[in-house]
């Protein structure tokens, strides 16, 4: 760091730089968070008149005794574990390849970015066709491999894998663009020096590129985990507004959405939001602590 010790003056300058962002975040993010934190403790609460009957842990008690909440928690964890590692490995690999090639590089970059550009609604309808059990493209392909028709969207066993595949597909472009930006921020001379020193490709990647890319990898990981925990739109459109067959894709945010918008159980919805919040927070802090030892800033 450039200025080793904070002073009053440097603090003033620091906050001046932060002010525009902080103002917006305070009003449109932090205030609503505090608001829903408070709401999670209101029981016998009238959302519309703001009359609070009681303050207590009732909502959390109800929440923790609801089997659907635990199902949602389980499904969300499976989803995150299913999506994040594959998505990061794939996008890192593709980003490296895209960064490496010259011929048609622009074309390929556009192709891989395409899914991210497309609206979720339209593309989810397309995936419904791909996943169709009788005539879907995926089953057509699998039949050639001798794997017999899977009812992707209506079999509770396969609904989650179907959701995971589509999410990975849709999210790749986002991660790739971040990795590409990260790669292009790396001074190419490091790479050349390594190659002159006789390092092979793997060694160059392992000891030069990967450490230099670690700040971006950390960021992509954190982002993927957070957005994985928050998955909702994909479920909603892929399964026609339902939480999947046999609630196989009932995720935490879907649960929250149901409680809030369909069932009007505001306190309970807020409580599930708070639980989700702390869950993500804990995972992110673990991630952060781990990364502090492993991230390499120049």
């Amino acid at each position: 760091m450039m200025i080793k010790k904070p002073t009053l003056k440097s603090t003033l300058i620091g906050f001046l730089y932060l002010a525009p962002m902080l103002l917006i975040l305070l009003v449109f993010n932090i205030f609503p968070i505090l608001d829903s934190f408070a709401m999670s403790f209101f029981t016998k609460y009238n959302f519309y008149t703001n009359q609070i009957g009681q303050i207590g842990l009732g909502n959390f008690k109800t929440l923790f005794s609801d089997p659907n909440f635990w199902l949602a928690l389980k499904n969300t964890l499976i989803f995150v574990i299913g999506v994040v590692p594959i998505s990061i490995c794939l996008s890192l690999g593709i980003a490296l390849l895209l960064n490496h090639i010259r011929f048609l590089a622009g074309f390929f970059k556009t192709v891989y970015f395409l899914p991210f550009v497309t609206s979720t609604v339209a593309i989810s309808l397309v995936w419904q066709w791909i996943y169709n059990d009788q005539y879907g493209l995926l089953n057509l392909f699998l039949r050639h491999l001798g794997i017999g028709p899977i009812n992707w969207l209506n079999d509770p066993k396969w609904a989650m894998p179907a959701l995971i595949i589509m999410t990975i597909w849709k999210g790749l472009g986002f991660n790739i663009i971040l990795f590409l930006a990260g790669l292009s921020n790396i001074d190419q001379r490091y790479e050349r020096v390594a190659q002159i020193d006789g390092a092979n490709k793997w060694q160059t990647f392992r000891y030069i590129i990967f450490p230099l890319l670690s700040p971006m990898t950390f960021l992509v990981t954190v982002m993927s985990i957070i957005s994985g925990f928050k998955v909702f739109d994909e479920v909603f459109v892929l399964f026609g507004g339902s939480p999947g067959p046999g609630q196989a894709t009932l995720t935490l945010v879907f649960y929250l959405y149901q409680k809030f918008y369909t069932e009007w159980q505001y306190g309970l919805a807020a409580a599930s939001g708070v639980v989700l919040f702390f869950l993500i927070l804990i995972v992110t802090v673990i991630n952060y602590l781990y990364s502090r030892k492993h991230i390499y800033y120049v």
Binding site: M21, L25, F28, I30, I226, L256
Partner: peptide, 16 residues
Amino acid sequence: CLTTMMVPGEMLIIPN
């Protein structure tokens, strides 16, 4: 600020 990323957008619609 980091915590602002941890709240699902569905929770923010009505307060905002």
